[in-house]
Design a protein around this nucleic acid. Sequence first.
DNA 1: ACCAATTAATTGGTCAACCAATTTTAGTCC
DNA 2: GGACTAAAATTGGTTGACCAATTAATTGGT
Lengths: 233, 233
Amino acid sequence: MLENFNEIKVETPVDKIIRQIRSLITSGQLNSGDRLPPERKLAEKLGVSRTHVRDAIRKLEFYGILKTLPQSGTVVSGMGITALEGLITDVLKLEKTDFSSLVETRVILETNGARLAAERRTPEDIIQIEKALIAYEKKVRLNQTAVEEDLMFHLKIAEASKNAVLKSLMLIITPDIVKSFIQYKVCDENEIEDKVIKEHEEILEHIVNGDGEAASQAMKKHLKDVFEFGKSL
Amino acid sequence: MLENFNEIKVETPVDKIIRQIRSLITSGQLNSGDRLPPERKLAEKLGVSRTHVRDAIRKLEFYGILKTLPQSGTVVSGMGITALEGLITDVLKLEKTDFSSLVETRVILETNGARLAAERRTPEDIIQIEKALIAYEKKVRLNQTAVEEDLMFHLKIAEASKNAVLKSLMLIITPDIVKSFIQYKVCDENEIEDKVIKEHEEILEHIVNGDGEAASQAMKKHLKDVFEFGKSL
DNA sequence: ACCAATTAATTGGTCAACCAATTTTAGTCC
DNA sequence: GGACTAAAATTGGTTGACCAATTAATTGGT
C-alpha cells in the first residue's frame, strides 16, 4: 500500500531552473549568441540560491548548450533554438532508456566497431583484446561476476577501431548497459558464459584475420545471444 | 611570434582533482562500491576548497562513475577500475575528435536511424520531417545559412526511429558536427545546398514508403556527398 | 564634439560557515 | 550480556560574503 507513494519524482531545484532556462531559450527570449542574465539576477528572479543556478548552468554547459566566460558572462552557444528544444528535454533524461533501445544501439555501434577494428587493428590492439579476453575467462573460471571484464573486451575492440567518437559513445552507454545487466541479471549462469567466451574468441579471430564483415557478423550474433538471454528472464 | 604561447593549457583545479581521484581509483585504493573519502577530508588532503571537490564529484557523477548519496557519502558506482581508466581520460576529452571519426560515426548512426525510421515512422513523424525539410529549403532560398535546420531534419529522422538512445547519441555529437561545419565552411555554396535538398527529399520518400534499406542507402550517399565536399576545401 | 584613460559597477570564481539528515557511538534498561 | 534509545559526530546540501577580472561609465583632455 505504501508503495504507491514511492513513484513521486522529487524535482530538484536544479531541474526546475533548467526547465526555466529552457523555456527562456525555446520561447525565443534567448537566442544563440545572446548573453544569459547574470547568475545573481537569475537566482533572485527564480527565487533560488545562486549555487543552484550555477549548478544548472554547469549542467547545460556540459552538453555544449551554454558557454560561460569567466568574469564576463554566460552565453548561449552551439546550435539554435530549433534543436535545443529536443536536446534539453531528452539528453538529460538519458537514464530513462528502455532496454531494447539500448541493446539496439549497442548492436549498431559494436558491429560497426568490430568491422573497423578488423580493418585497422594494430598488433598492440590484438594483444590488448586478448588480454581482456583472458581476464574475463579467468574471472568466469573462478565463478565470479565478470561484467566489467566482459565490457572491457568490447571497449578494447572499440579502441582498435581507431574511431575516437565511436569509442566515446560506447563509453557513454556503458554505464547504462551495466545497469541493465544487473537489473536483468544477465550473465549469471555458467552455461551462457561459456558461450560468451567462445563467441569472444571467434570475434577476435576475425579481427586478427582482418575480416571486417565476418567480425561484424560474429559480433551481431554474439550480442543477439546476450539479448535473447536477457529477454528470457 | 606571440602565437607560440597560446597553446598553454590552463589546468583548472577541478581537472587536477579529477586526475587525483582517477589515480585513487585506478591504483586500486578505491574499488567499485567503496565509499569515497568525505569531501572535507579530500579538500584538505588535496589542498583545495571543498567547492572544487564537489564540482569534480558532480562531473564524475555525470558519467555514472560516482554516485553521491545525500547526507551519507559518495560511492564509486558503475563499473570497476578496468574501464574507468579509459573512460575518464577519454570521455572528458570528447571535443578533441577528429573530423573523419566524427563523420564516420555519424554515418553509422544516421544510416541505421534512417532504416529504423522507415520501419517505424508514424504519420506524425512524417509531418515533422516534412516540416523540417521545408524550413531548411526556405532558409536556403533566402540565401541564409541553415545549418540548424539541416540538422533538425536529421534529428527528426532519429526521432522517428523510436530509439531514444540513438537519438540521444545523435544529439551528443551534434554540437561537434556544427562546430566542424563552421570550421570547414561546409554548406556555404548554393550549388551543394540544392543537392542537399534533393537528397533530403529522396530520403524522406523512402521513409514514407517504409523502405528501410533504400532510406539507409540514400542517407549514406547523402552524408558521403557532404563529407566529400568538406574534404575538398 | 570626440576620444582616451581612469574609475565605478558588474561579472563569474572562490571560500568558509551554517544546516539538516544520517551514521556512529555511548549509555541505559531489560 | 544484548537490545534499544538518545545524543554526539560526521555527512553532503546550502548559503551569503568576498575576490579578481571584466565591462561599462565617467571624466578629463584635445
